[in-house]
Nucleic acid binder design. Structure first.
Lengths: 102, 102
DNA sequence: TTATATGGTTACAAATAGTAAGTTAATTAA
DNA sequence: TTAATTAACTTACTATTTGTAACCATATAA
């Protein structure tokens, strides 16, 4: 008996975890490189970022592009699906701003 | 050097975890008892529900009311802060419905 | 007498997440 | 010439979190 996940559950599984929200938040501003994300997201470790980005890539939320520079440059950018999630983050930001300290 | 959390991070910390979203989803319909939530939320265990509800109560997202029946009845209900979060869940649901299978 | 219901708790195992260091290869600084 | 730096990760290990299963008191119903 497999349980059919509800829409919310499905969305949460696609996004992954807490770090995903913060990665997405950065990518809404502009595409970013691995170490840019590492520096921008407070408290994230390299392996947490690797796992998060791989998960987001697998779920078509971000694309990963490698440029053969020396050293190599890797850029992460939102897909249409990823951009569409911005509405959720905007509401979350609004809620956090209004209720975050109450 | 303590890092100041961004608004999104703050919101995520207040909500807690994945289960919180699913508990809130149930409570938007109506107030619920512990075992009602346990049955309604697929895959949640008693201790996960306990932890989640305690966290939500601590953060003023839900209220906990005990009725001295036999056996005891405990009702969980959303606060104004909890109700306000509905906008976020609505957007998440919309996104999940549109992009969940792509 | 056995089962069911309430709202949890407890002990333990399993899974996940975080920490610190290392990797390859080239470039730059002393 | 040697050491440090940068890029984008990986690896090994530990710590924390999560999940599983059983249990608790009390009372009513079958």
């Amino acid at each position: 008996m497999e349980a059919i996940p509800c829409t919310i559950e499905k969305a949460l599984n696609i996004i992954g975890n807490k770090w995903s929200f913060l990665v997405l938040k950065e990518l809404y501003v502009d595409k970013r490189r691995f170490n840019e994300l590492l520096r921008a997201i407070n408290g994230i470790s390299p392996n947490a970022l690797t796992t998060t980005l791989k998960h987001l890539e697998k779920n078509n939320i971000v694309t990963r592009t490698v440029f053969p520079t020396v050293p190599v440059t890797v850029e992460y950018e939102l897909t249409e699906k990823g951009i569409a999630f911005h509405k959720v983050l905007k509401e979350m930001k609004k809620w956090g701003a209004e209720w975050g300290d109450k």
